[in-house]
Design a protein around this nucleic acid. Structure first.
Lengths: 108, 108
DNA sequence: TCCTTATTTGGTCAAATAGCCAAATACAAG
DNA sequence: CTTGTATTTGGCTATTTGACCAAATAAGGA
């Protein structure tokens, strides 16, 4: 694999890696409904606010979300809206795995 | 976030995590052109064959690829074909980042 | 059966990730 | 300028990941 090609895959992987965490997937889903401030997301997620803030900065760094500081709060919005379609694709895989699992267990 | 919801995001994340590595993205791209044996992929990638084998097993475990043992070789095929559309989406983000970067550098 | 080739698995080590707490910053209101 | 609220950053530890090597398996042919 040549160097330029490798760099291309690295760049892709960076974005996908940003999505590859349950909390961050939740955030993306939540933001697909509209903007949210860090505090609201923190309430919903239930981790430490510093943890949520770090997840948001990973997403922002990857170009998946955008932030907008208004007064003392920071509001995040989804930038990578096409990810929603992909999640449906992921759900299909999950549905398939469940079917296979049932088939292996001898259920119909 | 309730327990069931969390499990759902965990399951999604597992699949996305499987894709979140440059070598594995390369494999998916390669398999989108047709099946390949481990040895051929190893040649293209240039890492140790055990490393490639492990990447393949991660993809297989996530339901992204399928294997088919024929004689002494193992051939892998892409199961999650919808990922291709997602990669275009990822490319758009990358293109956007490059544009932003140029804008910040004062170029047009 | 005994090689040879193709692939997987186990072990080890270094690097990256995720979470929490505490400290630093940013900003608005008094 | 002091206080209070919202958020980010730094530091620390535990866990996971990724790469390589060596050893184990699997299948085919001599």
């Amino acid at each position: 694999m040549d160097k330029k090609l490798h760099a291309r895959y690295e760049a892709r992987a960076k974005i996908i890696k940003a999505l590859a965490h349950p909390t961050r997937l939740f955030i993306v889903d939540e933001l697909s409904k509209g903007e949210q401030c860090v505090c609201k997301l923190t309430d919903m997620i239930g981790s430490d606010i510093s943890t949520v803030s770090k997840h948001l900065s990973i997403l922002k760094n990857a170009g998946v979300v955008q932030d907008d500081k208004r007064g003392t709060q920071v509001f995040y919005t989804l930038k990578m809206t096409c990810s929603i379609g992909f999640f449906n694709c992921v759900e299909d895989i999950l549905a398939g795995s469940i079917r296979e699992h049932m088939a292996l267990s001898g259920e119909k």
